[in-house]
Design a protein around this nucleic acid. Structure first.
Length: 549
RNA sequence: GGCUCGUUGGUCAAGUGGUUAAGACGCCACCCUCUCACGGUGGAAUCAGGGGUUCAAUUCCCCUACGAGCUACCA
């Protein structure tokens, strides 16, 4: 077989040569140790937590080493492409704090190693595919779907490994005449890699996360170029990551089993492969078992889920970081306020087994994230969330900006701050008590207090209420009132002698709390009243009295 | 089915040929306390199972079970 001639017949119209390309994509001039990483999603749907998880790792690796983090769009499958997906990927990632040094943009791109959309790199792949043919390492295959199904059936019947390989690789043995004839007849063809391995041969490499790995060498004559002339993932990955100078390649563990193909390709091209790092999948608990989080079944996998609920992007990032690197949480404990960029991220501390997504932990982290924001920042964040997902609440926040900010800030100072705020939707519900439009009495009065006493307490309380009182003076009055009505001034006294009292001051203030906030659970009452103002306090107490009668 | 990867409390996990097997979230109890929180103290709870190797195995090897992934002209 004349490989050079075959290459010429298969690729007659390429304008570029290998030298042209190598000249256009020189090795990157970076400091030693600088890592080049990438995110390479395919525009087939929404971006999910898994993408974000990987993106943070890639970004940290590049940033902390003075390297480059770029975005490449893997759009070689025209059938599955979803319109607008690229925009959604970029915007979605940006919202959660992922920025790229170079790569695809919504319109166009930036960086010298483009194009960053694989569909625009068709000729590049073909030039290298032609090289493969020249070396006798690739050949055209004219098999139809039916032909392949037939091969598979036979293999299954004979209990042999399925696939296109060895003696089953029908078109591997085509003569030049047969190929020319097929071509002349206009038969569609794909280009297959010609696997050259002995039975039982293995390949070894060191994975950044999993350590040394020994895998069976690839024996499949897999497809390198589809009938459309576009490459498969395997070929595109090898060509692109070589040309774009990727040094550390993070990807999901689903690629582990096709890794030998990629290794074979790198070897065939005579290129060095990047350091592969195969990450574990995020899992989901289902019944007794666990399974990979799935795009279809699990809305919480979509980034949009967290965004629509109003989780702060920093909270999502912080949470993902804790499951990304096993020693991050410990570091965070020692550096509670440091920027996460100060944490040195290492690939070998990434988990080998899939983590279950833990919403409760996210909530916990989310609470402490809000603690670090100012009331102003919280307000801005919640408002921008509400504008998109809860317009009624957005209107209220706009109308009562000052009130909202003060309410968000209650009890957050000092060294034992409250952690009331978790995420947008929760905040909307939690803060409802403060605004006149949403205030309503939803909880019931303490069972220890009779209806008559409730009325008495509220009447007397309102009479004695003075806006100028400080917190201590205010509560002193409540204590006094409690005592006058036969309630213990201190809960401890009541606990010791429950028969001597109707209840204790907590029950009395509970009545006031219900009247003022509508709930048994509210931030500090004195502060709430400072925000509401005398008139509103009086209005709410009077309404409560009226409702009791 | 074949191949590959994985398995430490409920969850995230540290860790090592000899440890009282960290820590975090959650849970429970108590303390603090005007509620709820926050905070503090304490507690329950883990090396999937079985074989080896070894003086000694959670750690090394093998098998089994379970989970996951791949087995496309998808990525």
């Amino acid at each position: 077989m004349d490989n050079l001639k075959l290459a010429e017949i298969l690729f007659p119209n390429l304008s570029l040569t290998v030298d042209d390309i190598e000249a256009k994509y020189p090795q990157r001039q970076l400091a030693p140790g600088a890592m080049v990483t990438r995110l390479a999603p395919s525009p087939t749907g929404f971006i999910h937590l898994g993408n974000l998880y990987g993106a943070y790792a890639d970004m940290k690796l590049a940033n902390q080493s003075g390297g480059v983090f770029y975005l490449r769009i893997e759009d070689t499958d025209e059938k599955r492409e979803v319109p607008g997906a690229v925009e959604e990927i970029i915007n979605g990632l940006k919202y959660f704090g992922v920025d790229f040094d170079e790569g695809a943009l919504i319109d166009g791109e930036k960086g010298a190693y483009g194009p960053y959309r694989q569909s625009a790199r068709k000729e590049l792949y073909q030039v290298y595919a032609r090289e493969l043919v020249k070396k006798g390492l690739a050949y055209p295959c004219f098999c139809t779907e039916e032909d392949l199904a037939e091969i598979r059936n036979q293999q299954e019947a004979q209990k042999e490994q399925t696939g296109y390989y060895g003696r089953w690789a029908r078109d591997r043995f085509l003569t030049m005449e047969q190929i020319e004839k097929n071509l002349a007849e206009g038969k569609p063809w794909v280009l297959r890699f010609k696997a050259m391995v002995q039975d039982g041969e293995t390949v070894g490499l060191v994975d950044g996360i999993r350590g040394p790995l020994v895998l069976p060498a690839n024996n499949m004559d897999f497809v390198v170029l589809k009938a459309t002339g576009l490459p498969t993932y395997h070929f595109a990955h090898v060509v692109d990551d070589h040309l774009m100078g990727t040094t550390h390649l993070l990807r999901g563990e689903e690629w582990l089993s096709t890794l030998p193909m990629h290794l074979a390709l790198f070897a065939a091209m005579g290129w060095e492969h990047p350091l592969y790092c195969h990450t574990a999948h995020l899992m989901k608990k289902e019944g007794e078992g666990r399974r990979k989080l799935s795009k279809r079944k699990d809305p919480e996998l979509g980034l949009n889920y967290y965004r629509s609920l109003g989780y702060h992007p920093l909270a999502v990032k912080e949470y993902l970081l804790t499951i990304l690197n096993s020693n991050y949480e410990e570091w965070r404990l020692e550096h509670p306020t440091a920027a996460d960029s100060e944490f040195e991220f290492t690939v070998d501390k990434m988990g080998r087994s899939g983590a279950l997504f833990d919403l409760e932990k996210l909530n916990d982290i989310s609470q402490t994230i809000f603690l670090q924001l100012t009331a102003e920042e919280i307000y801005e964040f919640v408002l921008s969330w509400a504008k998109e997902y809860d317009t009624a609440y957005a209107q209220i926040l706009t109308d009562h900006a000052d009130m909202a900010k003060k309410a968000f800030d209650i009890g957050r100072s000092g060294n034992k701050p409250r952690k009331d705020l978790v995420y947008g939707a929760q905040i909307a519900k939690f803060s409802a008590y403060i605004f006149p439009e949403t205030f309503e009495i939803t909880d019931s009065y303490p069972a220890e207090v009779s209806k008559e006493d409730c009325v008495t307490i509220l009447r007397e309380y309102l009479q004695g209420y003075a806006y100028e009182d400080d917190n201590d003076a205010w509560f002193g009055k409540v204590r006094l009132l409690a005592q006058e009505l036969g309630y213990a001034a201190k809960p401890k006294d009541f606990k010791k002698n429950p028969d001597q009292y109707k209840g204790h001051v907590g029950h009395v203030s509970g009545v006031i709390r219900i009247a003022l906030t509508g709930r048994t659970n509210s931030p500090d009452l004195w502060e709430v009243q400072q925000i509401l103002g005398v008139e509103e306090v009086a209005r709410r107490v009077n309404n409560a009295i009226a409702a009791l009668n």
